[in-house]
């Protein structure tokens, strides 16, 4: 009884929250809120970014400690270097293919449960972070509050990593391990679709 009523209470709350929520009208908005919204949605609404960010967390979970936490520390710092390059207008070739490749490669790492040494994992993730950061920096809307945009896209990136880590923690169960490796396969295929222009 209690479990059912707790479920119905939670479901009711979720549905009413959804009904009460207003539409997200954030892209390119002015002011702090608009800038934050534009920055936050930039990684979240780009499926290529989402796939790669979640993959970083999932692979970290497969690699175990300390990689599970080191990768989300390395990624934003190196990503910011890429963003700085994008803002400064320093040319970087093949940004979009690089982002797509990050999903392909990281997805494969998860699919085959590759246990790379920490420095290899950090270098690989760092190299891909440059491409993701460059895209964020180069596409910064001129109308947005720059500080709010930076806070938004860094926070969204970090939260996507945490989502990946949270999902990845299920590998302690056999079914979870299969599910995570399956997610790696899907991420890799999605990356391939981005790379070939299918998606």
């Amino acid at each position: 009884m209690s479990q059912l009523s707790r479920f119905s209470r939670t479901a009711g709350l979720a549905v009413s929250t959804l009904l009460l929520a207003g539409p997200a009208l954030a892209h390119g908005g002015a002011g702090f809120g608009g800038g934050f919204g534009a920055g936050f949605t930039h990684p979240v609404l780009g499926w290529d970014h989402v796939a790669a960010m979640v993959a970083v967390g999932l692979w970290g979970a497969f690699l175990g400690k300390p990689a599970i936490w080191i990768l989300p520390v390395v990624f934003p710092l190196v990503m910011a270097v890429g963003a700085a390059m994008g803002i400064a207008g320093i040319p970087l070739p093949a940004v979009e293919p690089g982002i797509a490749m990050s999903a392909v490669v990281l997805g494969l790492m998860i699919l085959f449960a590759v246990r790379a040494p920490l420095w290899v994992a950090a270098t690989l993730v760092g190299v891909f972070a440059i491409f993701h950061g460059y895209a964020h920096g180069a596409e910064l809307p001129s109308t947005a509050n720059a500080f709010a945009f930076a806070v938004g896209f860094v926070l969204a990136t970090g939260l996507l990593h945490l989502c990946g880590i949270a999902l990845g923690l299920s590998i302690k169960w056999p079914a979870g391990r299969v599910a995570v490796r399956g997610a790696g396969a899907i991420i890799s295929l999605a990356g391939l679709a981005f790379l070939t222009g299918v998606a």
């Binding site: 520390v73 910011a80 700085a84 400064a88 720059a146 860094v154």
Partner: peptide, 28 residues
């Protein structure tokens, strides 16, 4: 251990924001 690591992740986020802001400040 995840608490201490959480602080390190927050520090990384702060560093990333600071570097982006530095680029925006000095970029032509």
């Amino acid at each position: 251990p995840w608490v201490a690591m959480g602080l390190r992740v927050i520090a990384a986020w702060l560093g990333a924001i600071a570097l982006v802001m530095l680029a925006l400040t000095v970029a032509p």
